[in-house]
Amino acid sequence: MADKKRYGFVIDISRCIDCRACQVACSLENSVPLNHTRIWIHDQGVQGTFPKLSRTFVPYNCMHCEHPPCIEVCVSGATYKDPNNGLVLVDQEACIGCGFCVEACPYDARYLDEKLGVVDKCNGCIQRVEIGQKPACVATCLGGSRLFGDLNDPASDVSIALKNAKSLFRLDIEGKDIDTDPNIYFINAPQSLTSLVTSDAFKQQGQAVPREPKYTISEEGWKKVLVPAIAAGIGASFLVQATYFTKQLIEGEKEFDE
């Protein structure tokens, strides 16, 4: 499957000027409700002491992970990874808006559209990409920070940018049962990206990205207790029937065979 596409973003940290044109463009292109956004610009604020200061902006959106925790928890199959291009998409007609995926996403890249009762997120502007346009955020990025394209294609903008990158970071989460393997590559950051996005201040505000994925207690509970219990129940009823049936076979059906 060498010709399979793997769409992803490359974000040049050194070129983001926090102008927020991407956010506005995205909001309009995708009719994002006014109380939500699909793109965030992580800003730790001004660092250092006067006059030795620095400030770095880290824009991000859905990372279109290779192993997305959101898909793991989706009960209706609404969230899926497009087999043709690797984008993590939401089929809103199948979505019931339960929000398990919102809690699971370690990047907080999903939101619940209260009006439609469904979950929404960055879709890589697939509606534009399909007809040869760039995603809205990429097309209008003033600083030239955002790039989008096929990471499997060595001639794509993103591959070229990756090749020439001075530094490379991903906000990967690796744990005992998780490895998101995100498809946003941050390049040319002045320092370790993790220190930029997971500072104590952010953690206090609950804004650190990435965070530990949350799986609700109930959901864990189902898996650990209820599912085996139900399986055992069904199994037992089968067992009882089988015994009974066998017993009947052995004893014969006297009453009815007169």
Binding site: L28, A139, L142
Partner: peptide
């Protein structure tokens, strides 16, 4: 109007619009 794009033929926009331009509608 559902979306505004920068006109690539225009020397002042070169296909891009800032946040304000995008939000014009």
């Amino acid at each position: 109007v559902v979306k505004l794009e920068g006109n690539p033929d225009h020397p002042n926009s070169k296909g891009k619009l800032c946040a304000r331009g995008q939000s014009g509608l």
